[in-house]
Design a protein around this nucleic acid. Sequence first.
DNA 1: CCAATATTTGGCGATTTGGCCAAATAACGC
DNA 2: GCGTTATTTGGCCAAATCGCCAAATATTGG
Lengths: 116, 116
Amino acid sequence: MQEQAELYQRRAEILKALAHPTRLWMVDQLAQGEVCVCQFVEAVGVDFSTISKHLAVLKRAGLVEDERRGKQVFYRLRVPCVTGFFRCVDQVLDHPAAAGTCAACTTAKEDCHELA
Amino acid sequence: MQEQAELYQRRAEILKALAHPTRLWMVDQLAQGEVCVCQFVEAVGVDFSTISKHLAVLKRAGLVEDERRGKQVFYRLRVPCVTGFFRCVDQVLDHPAAAGTCAACTTAKEDCHELA
DNA sequence: CCAATATTTGGCGATTTGGCCAAATAACGC
DNA sequence: GCGTTATTTGGCCAAATCGCCAAATATTGG
């Protein structure tokens, strides 16, 4: 894993940016088109400075880009595919806790061996 | 957003579980089939107790399930679609920092209005 | 039962995150 | 320039996260 550590580090950085209820909700809103910061502020029950910081996190991760137009700043998604995350995440939520034994698997008799 | 807060909370929980380099790497390994804890331990340069806790996080999020066979415990993905996350995440990484103005957008002249 | 292997759990310090407040910055209209 | 609106930034504190160590638990084989 060591030689790929940086890659997974950067990937994790992106997921970390998404891993917050408010930010996730904002990304969902942005999936339908750009949104002004002030619109977010009105819809969410947190301080506007908090919203701004959340958007900064998304921007820093490369998920969104911003553009100032007049007094307002608009944000939009940089990569549309993030929308697809919801589908899979919800699948995890819906998936029943399937217990059960792997049919093709036998009990290990030897000691642990390395991962390829 | 308030009425959907719980949904986004649970979704974020799942993404948070993925949002760590080591855990992300482990999920990637699990995409190719079940893996024993001891195999992870040998491949990653952290304490085995740390590995165990990372796996517990993934399990708690519903992403993986475990099964003990003899002395060893094997983990496997519960939902295959998480593999698709990598494709999109990497797209975010590769996407150039496209600056530029939204063509169809004009400067706002009114004050901020609410989000639908 | 005892020793060895495999894994989980509890606890501890160090770092990061999240949210609020206050202050700074930006753009606009008068 | 001044006041207003919109947004970002810095500081602060509470809470969560990460990784190590030590100890507990589980399983197997003498």
